[in-house]
Design a protein around this nucleic acid. Sequence first.
RNA 1: GGCGCCAUGGCGGAGUGGUGACGCAGCGGAUUGCAAAUCCGUGUACCCCGGUUCGAGUCCGGGUGGCGCCUCCA
Length: 476
Amino acid sequence: MTGLRLYDTAAREKRVFVPINPDRVTMYVCGPTVYAPAHLGNFRPEVVFDVLFRLLRYFYGERAVLFSRNFTDIDDKINAAAKGKGVDIAVITDRYTDIYQTDAAALNVLPKTFEPTATGHMPEIIAFIERLIANGPAYVTERHVLFSGATHKPYGEFSRQSRGEIIAGKRVDVAAYKRDPVDCVLWKPADDDMPGWESPWGRGRPGWHVECSAMIENSLGETIDIHAGGVDLVFPHHQNEIAQSVCAHGGKPLARYWLHNGVLCLNSGKMSKSEGNVVTVHAMLADGVQGETIRYSLLSGHYRAPLEWSASLVNRARKSLDRLYGVLRRLNDVQPSATGPSEPVIMALCDDLNTPRALAALFAIAGRANRADTQAEQAQAKGELLAAGALLGLFETDPDTWFGLDAVPEKTRIEIDQLLRDRAAARGAQDFERADVIRDRLAAKNIQIEDGPEGVTWRLRDQILKSDMQGRTQPL
RNA sequence: GGCGCCAUGGCGGAGUGGUGACGCAGCGGAUUGCAAAUCCGUGUACCCCGGUUCGAGUCCGGGUGGCGCCUCCA
C-alpha cells in the first residue's frame, strides 16, 4: 500500500494503485512515429510518465518496475519521407530515433526497460493477427486483414463512443473493403516499391493499433498494470488496442489503469505536425535552452490539463530553477543528509501525479534551507531537495554548470577571475567607484556578481540563447 | 451533429464545503559601501445566473467563453 492514486480513464475517477504483482510492475506508453524530430507535445507524456516511472521505482524498487515504450518505425509518413529522399526507411527511422533518444536524455528522462519497434517484432505481430483470425474477430479481404470492432461487445465503452455515433459522425469516407466503419486494419498490402514483409496474406505491413497490442504482449504480458499516452489516443488507438488484445487473450483486460495526458498547445491550438505549429525539443536544445528548463515547464501544470506553451512559460521555469539551484549552490560544501523526499512531495505525487503541488513543496524546502542557522538543518534541507529532485528528474546538473560557468570559454573565465580580483582590491582600498565600474563592465557582458560571506560568486544573468548571442561573444 | 474537458490575483498554477498554496512580476522593510543574492512583510483573485447548505471556488441546474476527440496524431 503506497497511497498512490491515479486517474483511470476507463473508470473516469482516481483509483488507488495496486499492481498485480508488486515484484513486477508493468507500464507501457505509446511512443512516437520516427519520421521527423519530435516536438514538445510528443515529449509531454515522455516526461510526465517518467515521473510516474520514478515514483513507482521509489515504491517498488528499481528492478521491479518494467517500462516499455515503443517506436513506430513503419508507417505511411515514414515511407513518404524515405521515398522523398530516395533512401531506405531505416535511414529515416534510425536518424530520428537517435535524435529522440538524445532529446529524451537531455530532458532527464530515464532509459526504458524495453523499447520495442514494429519492424523488430514482425513475427510476433503476424502471429498475433493469425490468432485473431483463428479466434474469429479478424477477416481477410482484398489483401487486407481487418479487425471487426463489432465482435468486441463493449467496443466504444472505453472511449465513450457508440458505434452508431462513430458512423453518424464520421468525417472521412469508409474504405470499401471494410464490413463496418469501426473495423480497423491489422495488415495492409504493400506494393513492390514499398517496404513490406512476407505474411500469410501476402507482402505487406501491420496496422498501427495491432503493433502496440503485439508489442505489449511480447514485452510485458497479456494484462499490464498501466497503459498511458496522450489523450488524443483514447479513440481510436487505445479503443482498438483494447478490442484486439482482449479478443486475442480470451477476454483478459489489456491494462488495469489507463492514464492520459492533456494536449500541449501553442497559440491556443494543439501542437501537432499536421497543424504545423510545432516547436521541436531538438531545436530548443540547439538554441541553448537547458533540457531541465523544458522538463520543469512541462511539469509546471498538471499532466491531465492542457498546457499552453509560451516563451514566458519557459522563462518562468528557468527563473524558478535558478532559485532552487541557488540553494544548492550555496550549500555546495554541505554534505546532504541521507533522507527521503519530504512528505508533501510524496503526497502531491501520490495524488495523481500532482507535479505543480510537488514543485510548490520544493520551494518550502528551499525556504527552510535559506533560513537554516545550523549545518544540520542545511544538510537536512539539501537532502530533501535532492531526494525530491530524484523523483521529479531535477537537480541532476552541477549548480555551477547550471549558472553557466561552463558556458563561457576558459579564456573568458580567466579574464573574469582577474577582474574580480581587481574589484576585490578596489573594494579593499575603499575605491568603490572603480569597483562599480568593474561590476558594470561584467554586467554588460551578462555576468552577475553576487557577494557572499565567503567571497564573490558569479553567474550568467540570462540564459545565453544561440539565437541571441549578439554582443556577448567579444572579450571582456 | 455526437462524446468529453476546462474557466482562480498582473501572469502561471494548486486547492479534501468552513475566511484561498506556491512560483514569476510588483511594492515596503532588513541586510549591503551601492548592488545582486537572501530573509521578513505585502494582493478587497475563484466567468455569469439560479439552487442545495448554517456555510460553496469546492456540490446540482442553466448560460457564456475556451479547448480536445470523433481522421494520421503524444
